[in-house]
């Protein structure tokens, strides 16, 4: 089974999973973030406390949850709370990381999941903030997981749903958000990005094996900072692939 070549989605999940810091408390969004959390819990970060915004806290993630309020989001969990509790815990600063996605991202890591086009006369109406705005505002560090396409990596998002660094240095603090909080990474289907500490603009950190820097640039709708040295991400190990295919998503819902 593991001899089948890995896909870019599988690699994206592995790269995201390796970013989980053991022992931390992490908000997990629907879909790919769930798979990454499950893989992390089975490999490098066995002591993370996953928090799902609707109330599930500290689950043992044996089976892939299909939605953020499903019973599997707090399977054998430490606590089953309500959404007020999890959101207020974040407001109090108890949640270290937020793993989330969006339809669009800009160079400062701001995410849009509300509308494409004008808000009152939308070209496409997207689901809305959900916990996105709250997680991006209150968690100490956020990590976005995205399909890497030009129409998603845009110079300016149509609507800031989840704040990244807003307009650049000092903007989060001016908006009243805690100093030292903000996005730290973007994991895409092509590469891993971080943020330049001076300008707070997105910077290429490492490409996926087989992906060129040019390919990343071509698929990004803004000027990505390209450092002198760009790394290459480790491909999925045989064990990571086995866990993903046999234990985490055996039905192939996402991979």
């Amino acid at each position: 089974m593991s001899e089948k070549p890995y896909t870019r989605t599988e690699l994206m999940i592995c790269v995201a999973a390796r970013l989980f810091e053991d022992g931390t408390t992490c908000f997990i969004g629907t879909g790919i973030p769930m798979l990454a959390a499950m893989l992390a819990a089975r490999t490098t970060a066995p002591h993370i406390v996953p928090v799902f915004e609707f109330g599930g806290t500290g689950a043992i993630l044996e089976e892939l949850p299909r939605a953020v309020g499903e019973a599997r989001t707090w399977h054998k969990g430490l606590s089953a709370l309500g959404i007020c509790d999890t959101m207020e815990a974040a407001q109090r600063g108890f949640i270290d990381y937020g793993f989330l996605g969006g339809a669009q991202i800009d160079p400062y890591g701001n995410l849009n999941s509300v509308v494409i086009g004008d808000h009152d006369h939308p070209k496409a109406r997207l689901p809305g903030s959900g916990g996105g705005n709250d997680i991006g505002s209150s968690c100490w560090r956020t990590i976005a997981i995205m399909q890497h396409q030009k129409r998603r990596f845009v110079p300016k998002v149509d609507f800031i749903t989840t704040p990244g660094y807003l307009t650049g240095p000092g903007a989060r603090e001016a908006a009243g958000l805690p100093r030292g909080s903000g996005p730290i990474a973007v994991v895409s289907t092509l590469a891993l990005m971080d943020y330049d500490p001076e300008t707070l603009r997105m910077r290429l950190k490492a490409v996926h094996p087989g992906v060129t820097v040019e390919e990343v640039i071509e698929n990004t709708g803004f000027d990505l900072i390209i450092p002198d040295e760009v790394g290459v991400n480790e491909p999925p190990s045989a064990e990571e692939l086995r866990l993903l295919r046999e234990e985490i998503d055996p039905e192939g819902l996402y991979i």
């Binding site: 407001q91 509300v114 808000h119 009152d120 903030s129 705005n133 709250d134 991006g136 505002s137 209150s138 609507f159 800031i160 749903t161 704040p163 807003l166 989060r172 908006a175 009243g176 958000l177």
Partner: peptide
């Protein structure tokens, strides 16, 4: 009351 959330676009909307 809620802590600031940088929800300026939501506030406008």
């Amino acid at each position: 009351p809620m802590n600031p959330t940088a929800a300026t676009d939501l506030e406008r909307a």
